[in-house]
Amino acid sequence: MRSAAVIGTGAIGTSVALALGRHGVAVHLSDVNPTAARTAEAMGAGSLAVPEGPVDLAVLAVPPARVGTVLARAQRAGLARAYTDVASVKARPHDEVARAGADPARFIGGHPMAGTERSGPLAGRADLFDGRPWVLTPSPATGQDTLNRALELASLCGGTPVVMDATEHDRAVALVSHAPHLVSSLMAARLADAGESSVRVAGQGVRDVTRIAGGDPGLWGEILDANAAAVADVLDEFAADLGRTVSALRGLAGTDAARRGQAAATLDEVLRHGTLGWARVARKSGTPLTGLAAVPVLVPDRPGALARLFTAVGEIGVNIEDVRIEHSMDRPRGLVELLVQQRSASALGRLLDADGWTVAEDGWTVAEEAAPAAGSR
């Protein structure tokens, strides 16, 4: 691929442009918001100059409801030889392509399974799609050349192409993306009117649960509108489980021994089933979570301290499989959990302790205020 056009310079469109630029692709940018387009250009994502002839591929980084009309307009202008989009729903855009009178042979639906809660071109990153699935949803009319160009796009952006039916895709993202966003938003809404004392003690757990609730409400409203039925199906099942869990908690709060026993069994089942689901979406594929152990280390809130910790672990010769960080603004240090292979955990803890780091076996409860200034050497 030598040239491409990106229509829409939000976080995803700008990330696509930056990723293509890493491989020397000449990228032409456009956006209905000229400020966003100029910002993306200033970031080195591409040029605002109109291409002199058809580019190899045009990427439509626009909301789902606009894919059909933007595609038809771009095809009439002869912008590209092939077209794809990055909208997070696929069935409705496919239908709207036909209604808009666009040529379906030169279009293939696409959805890189990566994103950020931030919006706008400044949230763009060239590595956003590295190692992430990039779903392609060809229609029966999609031409082979169009499919090949979309496969090349995914590869150049560092993604892993996955070919799916559009309806199957929408059911999948309802489960793994759209419903979780609503659940996160509902949990975050509990905090909007919470007392200051409750918010002050918020830890990393609630931050993890509510992180994606910071997404653009306007964009997410359009996404949910385009996939409403599939999301409702997921939330129906979630609501049933939630109701069962609430009943169990009410039972535990009561005094009836038999009901308390049944409630405890229900909660145990809920929690155990949750760990099974969590294991299936482990961040690092191929790493058995049952073989990992956490080594908690207290790290001073100083520039470079975290980098020095990682360097120390590397010098010890242990591979970090994952990292969890808990940091409160009112504390002089953070708690960093290093997830390593179980066989290496004990030795790593001992060696870090000998090197001056504070290994907190019980998290914040051990030596929190007495921790030495490890990592300041």
Rank of each mutant, 00 (worst) to 15 (best):
R280P: 00
W364F: 14
A36M: 05
A141D: 14
T245S: 14
G291T: 15
L351R: 15
A232H: 15
G10F: 11
A4K: 11
G10Y: 13
V366N: 11
S344W: 01
T275E: 15
A72T: 02
E269D: 14
A360D: 08
A248S: 04
R211F: 06
N148A: 15
A172R: 14
T255S: 15
V231F: 06
V59W: 00
V183N: 04
V281D: 00
A102Q: 03
L267V: 09
F107P: 14
A105V: 12
A188E: 09
P180A: 02
V50H: 06
A229T: 09
E196T: 08
D216P: 03
P296I: 10
H28V: 12
E321G: 09
A154S: 09
L289F: 09
S376N: 12
G334N: 04
A258R: 15
R250W: 01
V297H: 13
A45M: 08
R207W: 03
G356I: 13
V6L: 02
G363C: 07
K90I: 11
P303S: 14
D330I: 10
G363Y: 07
V67D: 07
G78V: 04
A194H: 03
A265W: 01
I320H: 09
D85G: 07
Q342P: 11
I325Q: 13
E326M: 00
I108E: 02
G291V: 13
E117W: 01
L219E: 01
T69G: 00
V25T: 15
T255I: 08
M329G: 10
A114Y: 06
S155R: 13
A61R: 08
D256Y: 02
R118D: 15
A360H: 09
T35W: 12
V206N: 03
A5K: 06
V206F: 08
A230I: 04
A74H: 03
L186N: 05
S197D: 08
L242M: 12
L235Q: 10
A258K: 14
P64N: 05
A141I: 08
G243F: 00
T290W: 04
Y83K: 01
D236H: 13
A265D: 11
V162P: 01
V231C: 02
N33Y: 03
R343S: 10
I316M: 09
T14W: 05
H327S: 14
R2K: 15
T365I: 04
A82W: 05
Q144K: 12
P217A: 07
E222Q: 10
R333I: 00
L271G: 11
V201Q: 08
P140G: 07
G221K: 01
V97R: 02
V50D: 06
T137G: 05
L20S: 12
T116P: 09
M1N: 01
R118S: 15
P332W: 05
G274I: 13
A174N: 04
G214A: 12
T137P: 03
A80M: 01
H94C: 11
N227L: 04
D216G: 04
G286C: 07
L57D: 06
I212S: 06
T142G: 10
G78F: 00
T137F: 04
G109F: 09
D85R: 12
L252N: 09
P303V: 14
A257G: 13
G243Y: 00
A80F: 02
R38D: 05
E237A: 15
S88V: 11
E41G: 02
G363A: 10
G8L: 00
F238Y: 13
D130C: 10
R22K: 10
D268G: 15
L252E: 07
A61W: 05
P64D: 03
L267R: 06
H178W: 05
